[in-house]
Design a protein around this nucleic acid. Structure first.
Length: 581
RNA sequence: CGGGGCGUAGCUCAGCUUGGUUAGAGCGCGUGCCUUGGGAGCACGAGGUCAGCGGUUCAAAUCCGCUCGCCCCGACCA
């Protein structure tokens, strides 16, 4: 493509409404433009990048044995009512009526549709397993779109769904997709971590998020830099302390302090001049083992900067119905809401569970079990603890469960998420199959997403410098840029055009900047747009040479004109080889 | 949904506090000259519903009210 013909325009100015670096560079480089909040146009350059990413994902999904199809973006209300998600997802759905008043929705995801399709076709265990995917536009009326393509209201997603006769078969395929995802990201040059995550409302026992470390990200995960352990904040466990404090009684030195009206750690931090890590938060929970059991109460202690992780706590208690105690519960037990504390508290059958995080608190603050008073000077040895456990959200600096080294919190962008769905949708949509034993069973499902348009931003987040984008060759809009310094110089033009045609003949994607602009403009644009290989046809032509360089290091080499084609071919080949998996 | 910011030329912004010529600059755009290895120079020119609606006033980009749009922080996020 000749730049003089290409529909693009770069900008020197940082757009006023962009803050994420990828957003700024994609707008400035003329890859995308905004139509309205969370909705973007893909201009020719941006669309080429999109298609490159699209193609890589297709290749890797096909390799898992999945087949590509295309489902509609517009869905009838009825399908969404079957699973209850017409109401559940109401706040993020774009809903509309057709001419006859029937309601429809712009698809936020496609579990309902794919399961409906599969239910029409699959009858027997002989029809399974099957895996189907599409790359298609999704619509979500996000409460807050942000960062350009990072979170949009209309975006492109790859969604894959798999259908199995057994959990074993699902597990095997899940692992295959897991590997395929890592291959995808690696081919795009992205350093992505697969983080075990909580599966949330969607159900199933295992889920993984694929995270790229980035300051522009909205998510966070924990990583141990020494042993490589990684996990999401909710799921990460922590190493127990080497030694747990034992109860030694309550010393005289405990001081009661008047704290009128201050019940939150935040308020007390200011009032007492302490940090939140000096506090031991005391929480009252109630739970029961099963429906017909009575509620048990439990006192939970976590450090002031921590939050109780109810998933971990439920697991520890062996309960599925955990909830915080109500003000009425406090009254019944004779406890003072906002001022409870574990020191001297003796509630016969209520157990005290202490989070590992409080083991190291020294000279701490706790509630005094008396309105408007707290105790200071408390150490864990002064508290009667029934059990020690890991029941809070892990955070920066916590000891790694595997090696004990302090873990770090990394801001990140979620590029993919895979789930073991089980039978939630197949049961709802009546997608059953007849098994070998002649019995009808719900199909066991998995679902696997990749944010395709988000990936464009993610690549830019990882690959840029102060002058612009540095595309990895596998996703670059063009592989090679030919920059003709003086487009009016007959000789430069002739040599450029010759090289342009020869490279194209070799199957290389070339952008030829043949514009009649000053050299400065063309060099700045070259840096901004970030084509990986650059050939400059300029003054060195008098010596019969052209300049070749890579965008990433800009180290120039000069080669004789007649060696231009082979040198460029060689560079393109080696750049591609670096990203092979 | 809570908090904050912004809306004036294609873009980035001044002007608004204290109302008063024909609303400005830089970049970009057009024409001509000049220039061709890092966003050059000179000259001329085009380009505006000052987000919209209403109010106050002799007079509103400027003051007041409402509405709309966009961004950021938080909450939320299969």
């Amino acid at each position: 493509m000749r730049a003089s013909q290409l529909f693009f325009k770069t900008s020197k100015e940082k757009p006023s409404d962009a803050t994420a670096i990828s957003h700024v560079l994609l707008i400035r480089g003329g890859f995308i433009s905004q139509l309205t909040s969370g909705i973007y146009n893909f201009l020719p350059l941006g669309f080429r990048v999109l298609k490159k990413i699209w193609r890589i994902i297709e290749e890797e999904m096909d390799r898992t044995g999945a087949q590509e199809l295309l489902m509609p973006a517009l869905h009838p209300k009825e399908l969404w009512e079957i699973t209850g998600r017409w109401d559940l997802m109401d706040d993020i759905m774009f809903k509309l009526q057709d001419r006859s008043g029937r309601w429809h929705v712009l698809g936020t995801t496609h579990e309902e549709i794919i399961t409906w399709i599969v239910s029409q076709w699959v009858r027997s265990w002989r029809d399974l397993p099957v895996a189907l995917y599409q790359i298609q536009v999704k619509f979500r009326d996000e409460p807050r779109p942000r960062g350009g393509l990072l979170r949009g209201r209309e975006f492109i997603m790859k969604d894959l769904y798999s259908f199995h006769t057994s959990w074993e078969d699902l597990n095997e395929y899940y692992d295959k997709v897991h590997r395929a995802y890592l291959r995808c990201f690696k081919r795009m040059g992205l350093e992505v971590y697969a983080v075990e995550a909580h599966s949330g409302a969607i159900g199933g026992d295992v889920s993984h998020e694929f995270m790229l470390i980035s300051e522009s990200g909205e998510d966070k995960f924990l990583k141990c830099d020494s042993c490589g352990y990684i996990a999401s904040m909710e799921i990460a466990s922590v190493h127990p302390p080497k030694e747990l404090p034992t109860y030694k009684g309550e010393p005289e030195s405990l001081k009661k302090v008047h704290t009128p009206g201050f019940t939150s750690v935040e308020d007390l931090v200011k009032f007492l001049g302490k940090t939140s890590k000096d506090f031991i938060k005391t929480m009252l929970y109630k739970y029961r083992g099963s429906e017909d059991e009575d509620y048990h109460y439990v006192i939970v202690l976590v450090r002031g900067d921590k939050e109780v992780n109810e998933i971990k706590l439920s697991k520890f208690l062996g309960s599925s119905s955990l909830e915080m105690a109500s003000p009425e519960d406090f009254q019944r037990l004779g406890l003072v809401l906002g001022y409870i504390g574990p020191v001297g508290l003796d509630l016969s059958d209520i157990k005290v569970i202490a989070d590992y995080s409080i083991a190291t608190v020294r000279d701490g603050v706790v509630g005094a079990n008396e309105r408007d008073y707290h105790l200071v000077g408390v150490n864990p040895e002064n508290i009667k603890v029934d059990s020690w456990a890991d029941i809070s959200n892990a955070s920066e600096g916590d000891p790694c469960p595997k090696c004990g080294s302090p873990m770090k919190v990394y801001p990140s962008i979620e590029l993919g998420h895979i789930f073991k769905l089980g039978t939630k949708y197949s049961e709802a949509m009546k997608a059953y199959f007849t098994d070998r034993d002649g019995k009808s069973k719900p199909i066991i499902m998995g679902c696997y997403g990749i944010g395709v348009t988000r990936l464009i931003s993610a690549v830019v987040e990882q690959y840029h410098d102060e002058d612009g984008i540095i595309w990895p060759i596998t996703v670059a809009p063009y592989e090679v840029l030919i920059l003709t310094v003086n487009a009016r110089d007959e000789n430069q033009r002739k040599v450029s055009e010759d090289l342009y045609k020869k490279l194209q003949g070799e199957g290389i994607e070339v952008l030829w900047d043949d514009r009649d602009e000053t050299p400065g403009v063309k060099f700045k644009d070259a840096d901004l747009i970030g084509i990986p290989v650059r050939v400059v046809i300029g003054s060195k032509l008098k010596e019969g040479k052209v300049e070749v360089s890579l965008r990433r290091d800009r180290e120039k080499i000069f080669v004789p004109v007649e060696e231009g084609v082979s040198k460029v071919k060689e560079l393109v080949k080696s750049l591609k080889k670096e990203l092979e998996v």
